[in-house]
Nucleic acid binder design. Sequence first.
DNA 1: TTCTTGCTGTTAATCAATTCACAATTGCTT
DNA 2: AAGCAATTGTGAATTGATTAACAGCAAGAA
Lengths: 206, 206
Amino acid sequence: MIKDLPPNTVERLSLYRRRLLNYPNEDKLYIHSHKLAHLLKINPAHIRRDLMLIGFTGDVHKGYNIQNLIDKIGKAIDCKHTQKVAFIGIGDLGRAVADHFNQKETKLKIAATFRTSKPPKTQFQEVTCYHISDMKKVLIKENIELVVLAVPRSYAKAISGEIIRTKVKGILNFTSVHLNVPDRIFVEDYDVIAKLEKLSFFTNTA
Amino acid sequence: MIKDLPPNTVERLSLYRRRLLNYPNEDKLYIHSHKLAHLLKINPAHIRRDLMLIGFTGDVHKGYNIQNLIDKIGKAIDCKHTQKVAFIGIGDLGRAVADHFNQKETKLKIAATFRTSKPPKTQFQEVTCYHISDMKKVLIKENIELVVLAVPRSYAKAISGEIIRTKVKGILNFTSVHLNVPDRIFVEDYDVIAKLEKLSFFTNTA
DNA sequence: TTCTTGCTGTTAATCAATTCACAATTGCTT
DNA sequence: AAGCAATTGTGAATTGATTAACAGCAAGAA
Ligand SMILES: NC(=O)c1ccc[n+]([C@@H]2O[C@H](COP(=O)([O-])OP(=O)(O)OC[C@H]3O[C@@H](n4cnc5c(N)ncnc54)[C@H](O)[C@@H]3O)[C@@H](O)[C@H]2O)c1
Ligand SMILES: NC(=O)c1ccc[n+]([C@@H]2O[C@H](COP(=O)([O-])OP(=O)(O)OC[C@H]3O[C@@H](n4cnc5c(N)ncnc54)[C@H](O)[C@@H]3O)[C@@H](O)[C@H]2O)c1
């Protein structure tokens, strides 16, 4: 894992890797910066710079070796141990995200889901679904470090209050409630409405 | 509508408004920059600067008048006509987003949803659900300008090929497929995996 | 009245992200 | 063997986003 990568670079590296994992099907061993840039609709220099930051070098004519690049990205951004993820709230949104997640190659592992209604024994392969009242206990016992929070907004605050008493280090927060957690916990908020309103704005001015 | 607002400012203004729409319940007419900043966990100067950009001024002691601010944000970022939004793919993800959307105050209006299986007559209040094969026709007829794309990734390319033959100006794309559309169409991609992998990275280095 | 306090509006400074632009490299062609 | 063409790696320039800092103001206290 490489220190001091800019946040946007880390995010892009993840996207590069996911795109490349589909690429060998297309029967090539190497890829050029401009080709990958085109697939992702970004600037080629961007890619070269990102790869420079993780110390990956290409061949001046063949471009970048795809498998080696995938591996190198893993060394750069993946945690050494497998980090466990829990889904808190597994309604429509949580289910969609968890499903999507389980179809992708990633080092992260879904270790638990939580909800209020009586849970079925399992969901998503071997993932256990617990009742929300066991959340704190399970998060601690299972050593879960990341959570996806997708519960009705009125519960967000109380739940985040419990989360801070566990070893959770990061929260992907879909509740549109801004969580009050200590600095040691990373929060990433996402809000569709703001994105759509931005889209609306820029499709009517620019 | 104000020209030349930075993208991030537009997004934040949307968030300010949504937060403030809940605030009068809390029985205040005015709010200070540092108070709102605290609610959103951002820097107060940021808020003052954003409001400066839309020409909104506060009272040096009372702060910002909440209702006036809500109105001013509307004038700054909302489209003059009501823009119509369609959901293409209304499975778990589409449903979650559409639901979330319909609970919020916004000038945007869901005008149609599309899916492959035989559609029920309606969903979400008065929104009609159409079969995907009618998509192009309906998008054109209804003058739909924004779409949320949440179909299985294998269909994304073909569907975006149809979309470009309509008046759609913006796509919120959840498919993890990078769409090849002309520049006149704004695309906003979102990818949970990249966000989670970023979270994983920063909870293990920083 | 005069002083103190705490806020806004705004400029300036900083920090981060993106893009440009080109030297260096090397396969390929002639 | 020499010249061409295409690509990487990267410093420099640019653009954009964020934060600091403070003047100026006005309410309320003394
Ligand atoms: N930020 C965004 O972009 C975005 C998009 C879509 C939905 N959302 C939000 O995500 C949340 C979930 O949406 P959804 O469509 O999946 O809702 P849903 O009603 O389908 O699912 C809610 C889930 O939360 C669980 N839950 C309910 N009460 C709970 C409690 N007291 N404690 C713990 N868990 C509880 C339920 O068991 C269920 O699993 C909502 O708050 C919604 O507004 C946000
Ligand atoms: N980017 C992200 O963060 C993210 C998160 C979750 C899911 N996803 C992706 O979003 C998509 C939808 O996920 P979901 O869980 O809602 O899936 P889902 O299977 O529940 O729903 C799929 C929807 O697409 C429709 N559909 C199926 N085939 C179609 C076709 N040929 N043409 C048009 N529409 C068709 C279906 O009718 C259904 O409405 C998937 O591609 C998933 O991987 C992305």
